[in-house]
């Protein structure tokens, strides 16, 4: 319940504050969002599996975001930033799909 409230509050804040993202952060934001999405879906799946632990969720959320940002940063330094961020998005996308599949099995039994 609180999670849904948090979601709504975040959307409303984002819509009304229209924050300016610092230029140096711009390449990392989309990757960070995808990584956080992956963490959230993973947590939801764990919750349905009965193995959810809020400490694990916090750590995985933050580490996911940080690692994704670090990979992009490293890619930029190595000169393959565009390719590496594509790779990160692909990997996270696959994980999100498998998590959503597990959630779907829990909810729809299919």
């Amino acid at each position: 319940m609180i999670a849904i409230i948090g979601l709504v509050v975040g959307v409303v804040l984002g819509l009304f504050l229209t924050p300016d993202v610092p230029l140096s952060m711009e390449p990392y934001l989309p990757i960070a969002v995808v990584a956080a999405l992956d963490a959230v879906f993973g947590a939801f799946r764990a919750f349905l599996d009965g193995i959810f632990d809020d400490k694990v969720f916090v750590v995985s959320f933050i580490s996911n975001v940080l690692i994704a940002a670090m990979i992009v940063f490293l890619g930029d330094k190595l000169g393959v930033g565009a390719q590496l961020s594509t790779g990160v998005v692909v990997v996270l996308g696959i994980r999100i799909f498998s998590n959503v599949a597990a959630i779907r099995r829990h909810i729809f039994h299919a």
């Binding site: 999670a3 979601l7 975040g10």
Partner: peptide
């Protein structure tokens, strides 16, 4: 759930941005 709510809120904020 409060922690989850805060983090999900951050995610939503970042995503909308």
């Amino acid at each position: 759930q409060a922690v989850v709510g805060v983090l999900v809120g951050i995610l939503a904020f970042a995503a909308v941005t």
